[in-house]
């Protein structure tokens, strides 16, 4: 049997919003997290680690956008996490 429709998103806009939140937002979180790590660890090591952790983390973040009950909460979480990681990274850059 196919999945029970009762639990699925019916609005195409909401579905699109989920895909975008997971794909774009998830990517922003993944990238900013790894960039922040370069301030602590050697950049080439972080980059090599990201070959594995980056893509797997991104896939999980994409999945969470579908599982979460409210897509706006996902957007909010991803935007704040991305900012949380990116702001200290850019502040720590030598000018």
């Amino acid at each position: 049997m196919p999945a029970n429709k009762k639990y699925l998103t019916t609005s195409p806009w909401l579905r699109f919003s989920k895909i975008m939140a997971g794909a774009v937002g998830g990517y922003a979180v993944m990238l900013s997290l790894h960039l922040l790590l370069t301030t602590v660890f050697p950049r080439e090591n972080v980059l090599a680690t990201a070959f594995f952790t980056g893509y797997i983390l991104w896939a999980f973040l994409l999945l969470w956008a579908f599982v979460a009950k409210n897509v706006w909460k996902v957007w909010l979480t991803y935007i704040s996490l991305a900012l949380l990681f990116a702001v200290p990274y850019f502040l720590m850059q030598p000018v």
């Binding site: 990238l31 960039l35 950049r43 980059l47 070959f51 594995f52 980056g54 893509y55 797997i56 990274y89």
Partner: peptide, 21 residues
């Protein structure tokens, strides 16, 4: 995972080049 890295790693390399490098 290794397939993604081997074929479209620029998804990761491009922003890393721009920011970290």
């Amino acid at each position: 995972v290794t397939g993604i890295v081997l074929i479209v790693n620029s998804v990761l390399l491009a922003p890393f080049t721009k920011f970290a490098y």
